[in-house]
Computed example of a mutant assay.
Amino acid sequence: MNPKFSSLLLIVSLLVSHMAISQDTPNDDLHITGFIDTYYSYDFSQPNTSIRQPFLFNHNRHNEFNINLALIRLDYEKQRYHARIALQAGTYAQDNYAAEENMLQRLNEAYVGLSLNRANTLWLDAGVFSSHLGFASALSIENFTLTRPLVAESSPYFLSGAKLSYSPNDRWFLMAVATNGWQRIQRVPGNSLISMGTQVQFLPNENVLLNWSTFIGTEDPDETRRMRYFNNLYATFSLSEKLDLITGFDFGWQQTAKNSDTYDMWYGPVVVAHMQWNQRWATGLRVEYFDDENEIVTSSSGPAGFKTTGVSLNMDYQPDNRIMCRIEGRYFHSPDDLFDDISSLSNQNFFMTASIAILFDKSW
């Protein structure tokens, strides 16, 4: 383990121990959350490397027991300010934070927020925080499916910067974001342009949520700057006490060259249905398509870009509300040979993933 990370982990542990011992009566100011997601995945294409497919960043080790995400998170809450720090390990951290320095790869979130009005409806947060793009969480236990949809794997899980959020009432949520880039803690060397984004959420009633999120920025240094424009749309529906539905559609454009009037486009629709059969058993079904012909936000071995249809089905068992046991089958099909295979490439891919995840927390 990196010595700097060990020191930071020791400091966090001592802080938690001190708070637990020093406070005789709980006041709920400090909240600690722990999460561990263990998994085993078998890719029937039997790729030649342990990393199954290059466009997946969760549960993506073939024929190997591993940790997708192990996380410890501290939240400090007061009426007019709050703070969060979360440390992480696992294949999720290795793959999604690969562009960052080793120390920063261990940082899942770290931010401070201040209330800007007496009603506490206007907040300014700054640091490293979860992305406002997409409905999939980095914590698998919070999602209807075990693995993440292609639209989530090809858009940011985290951002670094500042965000201004406003909740005028229970129905509306508005946010503006300034960041260092597209899923980056450190800005791209040579890039002087800050990226921007927005989010609008509307709840017409207690059973429906509508979301529109955006991103405008670049992933290039100034001399080759190509602007990127991205939209994330999704809606969640609670159709009954047992049945929930999510529909989403992502689409974006990027300039083909600096100052060019032509753009390359990518897009992806997804539908997720979730049936809670009883307190312990549930099923998740996902149907999706993703088209990134010029591989702007995906990476594959295919000769003609990335075009893929996907279907997945998972069965969930919860012996306790803190523990989730899951098994999922997932199938991909493409008109081109783009999936890593035991021999070369294939136009289809099927894999099974099993997971046991636990989420626990405590307040002081």
Rank of each mutant, 00 (worst) to 15 (best):
R84A: 03
N63V: 01
D24R: 07
I67D: 01
T49G: 09
R73K: 15
I32K: 08
L15I: 07
N48P: 10
Y42F: 11
H59C: 06
I67A: 03
D37S: 14
F55V: 12
A86T: 06
M19H: 10
F35D: 05
I51N: 12
D75C: 06
L56N: 01
M19N: 08
F65R: 05
G34R: 06
H82A: 07
Q46D: 15
I21G: 02
L15W: 03
D24K: 13
R52M: 15
G34D: 13
Y81I: 00
Q23Y: 13
H82C: 03
T33C: 05
R80L: 08
L69T: 01
H59T: 00
N60L: 02
R84M: 05
D29P: 00
P47W: 05
F65C: 01
P47G: 04
A83K: 01
F44Y: 15
G34S: 14
R84G: 00
N48L: 15
A86F: 04
R52D: 07
D29Q: 13
R80N: 11
R73D: 12
T33L: 15
I67F: 08
E64D: 07
G34N: 12
Q46I: 08
L69M: 08
F57M: 00
T25C: 08
V16R: 12
R84W: 00
Q79E: 11
H31S: 10
I36T: 12
D24F: 06
P47M: 08
G34W: 08
H82E: 05
R80T: 10
I21M: 02
A20Y: 11
N63M: 07
I51R: 14
A83D: 00
Y81D: 04
Y40R: 14
Y40F: 15
F55D: 09
N63R: 13
Y76W: 10
V16M: 07
I72G: 15
D75S: 12
I21V: 09
G34T: 12
N58S: 11
F57E: 02
P54M: 13
S41Q: 11
F35S: 05
F35W: 10
S50R: 12
L69I: 04
I67R: 01
T25G: 04
S22L: 06
I72H: 02
R73V: 01
I36M: 12
I67E: 04
L71T: 07
Q79D: 13
D37W: 02
M19V: 06
Y40H: 15
A70I: 06
L15P: 00
D29E: 13
T49N: 15
D28I: 01
